[in-house]
Design a protein around this nucleic acid. Structure first.
Lengths: 193, 193
DNA sequence: AAAAAACGTAGACAAATGTCTATAAAAGTG
DNA sequence: CACTTTTATAGACATTTGTCTACGTTTTTT
């Protein structure tokens, strides 16, 4: 069955039939995004959220010095996009690009609102995701203001082992708010324990 | 008029009548929390969210060394609580206490769910808050992983000037993930510009 | 298979930030 | 008012983290 179909029925309390899913799916457009290509670039308005069927993506911010700071990592069954830009129609400060060749399903804001109306299960799903996301970002903030680099990395390994296999260390370092050199040192130290 | 009444009608698209508000309000219990008293302590399950009618509160995490790390600051018209504990019924890792004498309105999870059902305007309000919160935390994460202490403070002054008047510097420093000494240095540097 | 790019680690040094102690002013308390 | 507590700053020093350069390995591309 289609990954999105499984995904929705795994989260929602009321199931969606295969028949219903056909209409549902028609609001999404399929797209392949090859490695290094953009889903969103700085300055653009985020018109689509992307459900990742296959592949891996990253969202990052580029500072005045030209340094990339990884803000989010995404793999299969995650939603990629810039919520602020998507909702407020403001230019995004982020770039989102494919780290691996990707297959995604794109959906507009209008379609989301329509589908939420038409399929309460989808509405419910998005609310749950929002709640989860709120909880996860709260944890990440707590971690980033109060833990050492060492502890932040240990936590990351615990919570997101699947990212370790998909992204190289310098990307993970950036996600944690440290440089690749520091991460390398932290790992060396951790080995001795 | 009651602050909560104003608050709801300011956010919602459909207005709530004063009559409706009476029934609505009955789900909340009023409480006064004096300075330094707890709304929530580490290890407890967060049974109530608090709408702050008057006063200022802080949420913080205490690390192994006994150091407080300020995770959130709240003033009038904000909601204080630990979402993770509130939703998942797990013991909280946070403390929430009153920084100034407070008047709050407490509400349980069950009451929220009931009110959401009964008053679509309230449901809509909470969704909007969630959305806002998601956007704000995303920004805070971006700031904390990619900006210097100096830029983070400058951003804070821009975005939350009302906090500056309510909380001392060591609290704000902690919120920014730095020590009071570092904040003092940062401010000194900023003055010269 | 050869060449190029990406990756991880290392070491030397610099910069930022934390730690600690001290001090003085300001605010709160009885 | 006198006393205590809180707050902000300062300086000396330690620690962490960043910066830069280099090197060898792995991976990707041609």
């Amino acid at each position: 069955m289609h990954p999105l179909f499984n995904y929705i029925n795994r989260y929602a309390s009321s199931l969606m039939s295969e028949k219903e899913f056909e209409g549902f799916r028609s609001h999404f457009s399929e797209k392949k995004i090859k490695k290094k290509q953009y889903l969103l670039q700085e300055g653009e308005i985020c018109k689509y959220f992307a459900f990742i069927v296959k592949g891996a993506m990253r969202k990052y911010y580029i500072d005045e010095k030209g340094v990339e700071h990884i803000v989010n990592l995404y793999i299969e069954n995650w939603w990629a996009g810039d919520r602020e830009s998507f909702v407020m129609f403001t230019p995004s400060i982020y770039h989102i690009d494919a780290w691996e060749d990707c297959e995604v399903l794109l959906i507009t804001r209008e379609s989301i609102l329509e589908l939420c109306h038409q399929f309460p299960a989808f509405n419910e799903l998005l609310l749950k995701l929002d709640e989860r996301n709120n909880i996860a970002t709260q944890r990440r903030i707590t971690s980033s203001i109060s833990f050492t680099a060492e502890k932040r990395y240990a936590d990351f390994v615990d919570c997101h082992p699947y990212f370790l296999r998909r992204f190289p260390q310098h990307i993970i370092a950036s996600y944690l708010g440290i440089t690749k050199d520091t991460l390398s040192r932290v790992r060396k130290k951790a080995l001795k324990k």
